[in-house]
Design a protein around this nucleic acid. Structure first.
Length: 453
RNA sequence: GCCCGGGUGGUGUAGUGGCCCAUCAUACGACCCUGUCACGGUCGUGACGCGGGUUCAAAUCCCGCCUCGGGCGCCA
């Protein structure tokens, strides 16, 4: 940038007071010998009498600020030690090497500015001396995310999304966005949130399924989307949300086996990204060793899966062909396998209409699920791309094809064979970090009871 | 949708009929303390979700309401 350009910008060089943050130094970058201005939150004040320490916290860590009462200006001491915890301050002073300080450096202040005073009684304690329950934490998410271990979850979540996006690009995908306000549901089964759209009945979208299929028939061919989905089920569990974030993938000219390859690739990329780039966050969360999945994920057919569940002897009643896997069955199988695995070749009748059946066995579908030992992560499959078969599938599942004409119509104009899948970001975060509740993996969860904040 | 459990100071808890004008920790207020790092010490402020009932006596038992969490189903 030239001098001339900089003078026309929002921050003019000779008005330093208009950009106080420009000169801010992160606590982690405060090196001995420098005079710096740091800014952040008052984590704690330890007043020992003649000497007192203010611990300042910012996004990079904590820095100790020393106040020697007899040797320093009274106003400075009064301002620095008179603030409540979690107030926002900026402090200018000299950084000194000090082996007795927690980080081996401390700041000797010349001036302290209180930018925002905090109320003395906090709804939760960011220093973590006293635990808070999840509802209290969610009601006060701003304070909650001042805790380094809570912040770490969302830094890791961001890294998962980065790694997944990079992986998708590496296999030739284009990122798309599809509408979240829609006229009809996807599968007809799940409850939708009804809304009014200029006087017309409409719904919050339950899944990008139909839209992403329409796009594999477009010139884009191979696409992914990261976006919200909305489901009006009144479930109350630690693994369901009414608004979740889905990672959807769909590609032309691949089958369900190749779709599983991509699925496995994205998940491994997510684990590897976190292992490579989030060691500090993992440390904060207390991970001794973070294991990335190695080797190929086992691919069990549905038939093999129910046989294996029955062989564990964990279930009171044996599964028979055609049964869906109950939560109990999923857990028994997950314990038995001990890692991620696919279940393939599901009975057609428990998979949606858009999943293709085997030509030589119409009772068997090319649908698959990716499972973590704790829960289902992904649902996907080879799609039905043939117009006549698709419309027949609608009718067999009791759906009216006319309602989905915008979708089926495009299958008349050259829809290539295609396959894809979708997984829930929150479930990936939750299983990766072994979080007890899916609400931990969302900043502001929407569940049966919670609409605010 | 069906079923189960819980709500005690700001926060997290102890207390299952009288021992409770309610325990402990932390926070908050006051005072003491020159190397803390969950700083320490002394003193103090502060709560039984709401309404009704049973009982000589209710935080505790019963009913209704509000509210939160969990199990199943279904799903990601």
């Amino acid at each position: 940038m030239t001098d001339g350009a900089s003078k026309t910008g929002p921050f003019k060089g000779h008005h330093r007071e208009q950009r106080p943050m420009q000169n801010r130094t992160y606590t982690a970058d405060a090196d001995p010998g420098e005079t710096v201005t740091v800014a952040g939150w008052v984590h704690e004040i330890r007043d020992l009498g003649g000497i007192a320490f203010l611990i300042l916290r910012d996004k990079t860590g904590k820095l100790q600020i020393k106040f020697e009462k007899d040797e320093m200006d009274d106003d400075l001491v009064e301002t620095g030690l008179g603030v409540h915890r979690e107030s926002v301050v900026s402090v200018t002073g000299r950084v000194e090497e000090e082996p007795r300080a927690p980080t081996d450096v401390e700041l000797v202040p010349d001036s302290v500015d209180v930018l925002a005073e905090a109320d003395p009684e906090l709804p939760l304690d960011p220093s973590g001396k006293v635990e808070a329950e999840l509802p209290t934490r969610l009601d006060n998410r701003t304070l909650d995310l001042r805790k380094p271990e809570v912040k770490a979850i969302f830094e890791i979540r961001a890294e998962i999304l980065r790694a997944v996006r990079d992986y998708f690009r590496s296999v030739g995908c284009t990122e798309i966005n599809t509408p979240k306000i829609v006229a009809t549901g996807t599968e007809g089964g799940t409850e939708l949130f009804p809304i009014t759209y200029f006087g017309q009945e409409a719904f919050m979208n339950q899944s990008p399924q139909l839209f992403k299929q329409l796009m594999v028939g477009s010139g884009l061919e191979r696409i992914f989307e990261v976006g919200p989905i909305f489901r009006a089920e009144e479930h109350n569990t630690p693994r369901h949300l009414n608004e979740a974030t889905m990672i959807d993938f769909e590609s032309s000219f691949i089958d369900h086996n190749e779709a599983m390859d991509v699925c496995e690739g994205t998940l491994k990329a997510a684990y590897e990204g976190v292992a490579e780039n989030c060691q500090e966050q993992l440390d904060r969360l207390g991970y001794e060793e973070f294991e990335t999945p190695d080797g190929d994920f086992p691919r069990l057919t549905y038939e093999e899966a129910i046989e294996r569940v029955n062989a564990t002897g964990e279930l009171d009643e044996q599964l028979v062909w055609g049964d869906d896997l109950s939560t109990e069955a999923e857990k028994a199988l997950g314990d038995d396998i001990g890692g991620h695995y696919f279940i393939t070749d599901w009975p057609s009748e428990i998979k949606p209409f858009y999943i293709q059946d085997y030509d030589d066995d119409p009772d068997l579908s090319k649908g698959f699920d990716l499972m973590h030992p704790r829960m289902e992560l992904v649902s996907g499959g080879q799609r039905e791309h043939r117009y006549d078969e698709l419309v027949t599938g609608f009718e067999q599942q009791g759906l009216d094809p006319d309602q989905f004409e915008y979708y089926t119509k495009m299958f008349k104009y050259g829809m290539p064979p295609h396959a894809g899948w979708a997984y829930g970001v929150e479930r990936v975060v939750m299983t990766m970090l072994d979080l007890p509740n899916i609400r931990e993996a969302v900043l502001f969860p929407r569940d049966r009871q919670r609409l605010s904040p």
